[in-house]
């Protein structure tokens, strides 16, 4: 892409043209389709502008009502005249790499609002986690001047961990009957969020989950990042109950981070993390390819028991290191 074209695209995108924003995102999302100079000049431009947006990661098992909650949060932020971007992440099929992205359904009522931009993306076969380009999409939204960037996770596994790594505020959504999650928290094996939302609060069992959560957080040394004590809030996304309270807590958390200087720490962390993710991705791809190509004789020996896996790995590593 010529410098002129890039500048025009950036200019239009920065002025809020949704077609231009979208095209820009596509370039960043699929860097393999462009030369590195194009990507680089776009990213540098946006990253120099960024660093202001409040990134909110929303995690929780499938079916807890993340999308509906996000839709309500969009309304809340829009009432304060903030610009909102949503990045919604769905899993890719490990077999066909196809993806069914349906989270947008519940946010479609915002699609006519020029100050709301919703984009769906897929994990694209990356081993369990967030596709590296997703992190760069967040970076791009930040540079394009969105005030709030909401990331909706798949709701399982490594993707959620990755989202925690790039967000300022992590909202973990649970629903009544979330026994497994409560057990996991008690055992300390569940990642901690900054805010716990008990959704579907119109259900009678909601109070129980609320009490259990509050109890776990109070009785334990659980603190999330930077010494923040997690908050629990009951919400009914469908009826809109509890949303403004949630909004207040989100603000409180943001203020907490800014007061301690942690808000910018997280941005630093995110940028470093994005490099880690991309590197990991490149190296994994390389291993996967080179193993097939050059490593097959060594692998055969491992299979037959003539070489141990340690020695085999070291041999392959040394070979890779030379070609990198």
């Amino acid at each position: 892409m010529s410098k002129n074209n890039i500048d025009t695209l950036l200019y239009r995108a920065l002025n809020g043209d949704i077609r231009a924003i979208s095209k820009l995102l596509t370039i960043i999302e699929f860097p393999a389709d462009h030369d590195i100079e194009t990507i680089s000049s776009i990213m540098r431009n946006l990253m120099n502008r960024g660093g202001k947006a409040h990134i909110i990661g929303v995690t929780g098992s499938p079916g807890v009502g993340k999308s509906t909650l996000i839709s309500k949060l969009i309304s809340l932020f829009r009432d304060r005249n903030e610009r909102v971007a949503v990045l919604s992440i769905d899993p890719s099929s490990p077999f066909t790499l196809g993806s069914f992205m349906g989270n947008r359904i519940r946010m479609q009522s915002h699609s006519l609002d020029p100050n709301v931009f919703i984009r769906s993306t897929a994990t694209r076969g990356v081993t369990g986690g967030l596709s590296p380009s997703s992190v760069l999409l967040i970076e791009a939204f930040d540079g394009l001047g969105f005030d709030k960037i909401i990331i909706e996770s798949v709701g399982v596994g490594q993707t959620d961990v990755d989202i925690i790594n790039v967000s300022h505020t992590v909202i973990n959504v649970l629903m009544p009957g979330a026994g497994d999650e409560i057990q996991a928290m008690k055992a300390g094996i569940m990642e901690i969020g900054d805010i716990y939302v008990v959704n579907k609060s119109d259900k009678p069992e909601a109070d129980l989950v609320y009490r259990q959560l509050t109890e776990i957080i109070r009785s334990s040394k659980y603190k999330s990042k930077y010494g923040w004590v997690p908050k629990v809030v009951k919400v009914s996304s469908i009826m809109g109950h509890g949303i403004s309270e949630l909004g207040d807590i989100i603000d409180e958390h943001r203020k907490f981070l800014i007061d301690r200087g942690s808000f910018s720490d997280i941005i630093i962390h995110r940028r470093v993390y994005s490099v880690e993710l991309i590197l990991k991705y490149i190296i994994e791809e390389k291993i996967r390819k080179d193993l097939k190509k050059d490593g097959s004789d060594i692998l055969d020996k491992v299979v037959s028991g003539n070489i141990d896996p340690y020695t085999a790995s070291l041999t392959i590593y040394n070979k890779l290191a030379k070609t990198c």
Partner: peptide, 25 residues
């Protein structure tokens, strides 16, 4: 999806404008 496409599904009761804007985004 099974053929390997990435499919964004936005469901029922969509207006022409909502669809166009979603498609562009």
């Amino acid at each position: 999806k099974e053929y390997g496409f990435e499919v964004v599904y936005i469901g029922i009761r969509q207006t022409p404008e909502m669809i166009a804007k979603a498609a562009v985004q």
